[in-house]
Design a protein around this nucleic acid. Structure first.
Lengths: 96, 96
DNA sequence: ACCTCACATTGATAAACATCTATATGTATT
DNA sequence: AATACATATAGATGTTTATCAATGTGAGGT
């Protein structure tokens, strides 16, 4: 019960920071490597790395290593988990 | 553009704290007054008040004043905005 | 008018978080 | 093996956030 709440909070951490929203927006159209994201953001490389870790921990983003590069993309399954939680929240009074 | 990202982050602030998730869970079945919520949570009254403010600012919860009491409930419209954002995020590569 | 009850606000404090610089790790390339 | 590059990690710092005790506000009730 407690754990569930913690896990849910971790999922939505992805969306509660302005820079992470910006990153998600950049990933919306296609998979991108970290260096490309860095170019388009106004933050340092370690800060980007920090945000990417939070995004991956949330399950909303997936990282794929290819040689020196990390390619990041949005995880439909991750989004589905978040969607599912919100859908359940909407069934007000109808079912428990 | 910048503002959009900030507004989106505010919406999802509702879901990124363990106690707020717990509150949303309590509101899932029915509207409840603050005092009832307080009974079921392990926090002080000012802390509850603080969380309720964040939840209302996010648009996910609606407050209704009735005499001395504040009744809180989940806003389907608020949830829909969050759902809409996530849906758009899922259209990967298909449309911009 | 006074008191009580429900809730909000203020002010203080500690924990969490975002950010940076500096450094480490790991993967090509020469 | 030496270097260069892409990313991660560590450590430090300022800011935001969660929390509480104390106080304010406003609505009934006596």
């Amino acid at each position: 019960m407690e754990l569930d709440e913690k896990r849910t909070a971790v999922i939505f951490k992805a969306f509660c920071d302005e820079n992470r929203i910006k990153i998600l927006h950049l990933l919306k159209s296609e998979e991108k490597c970290a260096c490309k994201l860095l170019e388009e953001m106004n933050i340092t490389q370690p800060t980007l790395s920090h945000h990417m870790k939070i995004l991956c921990d949330s399950g909303i983003v997936i990282g794929r290593k290819e040689g020196k590069w990390m390619h990041y993309s949005i995880s439909p399954d991750g989004i589905d988990k978040a969607l599912c939680y919100l859908e359940k929240l909407k069934n007000i009074g109808e079912e428990s």
